[in-house]
Nucleic acid binder design. Structure first.
Lengths: 172, 172
DNA sequence: ATGATATGTCAGCCTTGTTGACATATCTCA
DNA sequence: TGAGATATGTCAACAAGGCTGACATATCAT
């Protein structure tokens, strides 16, 4: 197998090598791991006529009851037209409920229905099973370290927002 | 904020809780991290009129010169029609070259051109920069641990194949 | 009352995945 | 040598889920 990296390999020892030698292992493992990670839900979503886009919406609404459209758009980073397409279906099939805002009646507050929470939980458990299988037989500090790594992988501009969304106002 | 997990929370102490309590933090962090991770290449690919599908093909061909169509299909897990659409463009724009197999002349052996290797390397470096930023100031064993975690996240059926593809026949 | 804001909707386009059907070249094996 | 398996290419149609642009409506804020 010829070398895919022409020069750059053994040229500078020290700092440059660390900065410039591609981390092919982590790049490729991240790709394969993410693909398998989302494949579990995919199978089940198909039974309901839903796709990944529905999953994301259902997940974040279920996790954050009373979420507004604007907040959801901010989380998903898609256009309102894209969101509306899947959200409409989730509402029609009674997995999500949209109530008018009380303080600001222009807003729509989104809530997962009992059926919606049930599906969201089912999918989250599936993914949790995979995560726990990976963590089992690893060092006890692995989970915390992986969590820290993933957070630092996120754009610094978003990381505070994500941190708040994921960890909320918890004690940990 | 109401509780998104109806029952199941404080019911059983012990093993069940570990198995059944969703790991929302890792699930969500994985989603946000992956999204930002692929966004770096996206910007550059746009300048060339390429998308993510082109990136994946170019990456694996560049990393594995002489790859056949069948092997590439096996890695990407898409249909040959999907692959052919993007592969044709990469060949037309001279980022990938297709040579007839020598042992088996039915096969096409794929090679990245100089231009193709250059782009692949540029994108890999971008992603590496993000990875290194995340790893900097983390424990030295972090990289190895994250790598092990990602590998274990992969379907057990694929993991041997992925391990071979990623780590090849190296010493580490 | 007016302009800004939150949301909804129509129409059309792109990328990237899918299936099914069929063509061609080449290899393998009886 | 001839038949069937294999590797690849290609056409056509479709679906999911992104996008843009334009415009409508209701409500809020000043």
């Amino acid at each position: 197998m010829p070398d895919a990296i022409p020069a750059l390999k053994a040229r500078h020892p020290g700092k440059d090598v660390l900065a410039e030698t591609p981390a092919y292992d982590l790049i490729e493992l991240f790709f394969f791991a993410y693909r398998d990670f989302v494949s579990d839900p995919d199978r089940i979503l198909g039974e309901y006529g839903f796709g990944r886009a529905h999953h994301r919406v259902l997940h974040f609404v279920s996790r954050n009851p009373g979420l507004t459209i604007a907040e959801l758009l901010d989380i998903l980073q898609i256009t309102k037209q894209s969101l509306n397409r899947v959200l409409k279906e989730l509402i029609e099939k009674d997995f999500i409920e949209s109530r008018m805002g009380t303080a600001d009646r222009r807003q729509r507050l989104l809530y997962a229905t009992a059926q919606g929470r049930e599906l969201a939980l089912k999918l989250a458990k599936l993914q949790t099973r995979r995560i726990m299988r990976a963590l089992s037989a690893m060092e006890p500090e692995a989970k915390e370290l992986v969590s820290r790594y993933l957070l630092r992988l996120i754009d610094p501009d978003h990381s505070a927002h994500v941190k708040h969304l994921v960890f909320g106002s918890e004690e940990t």
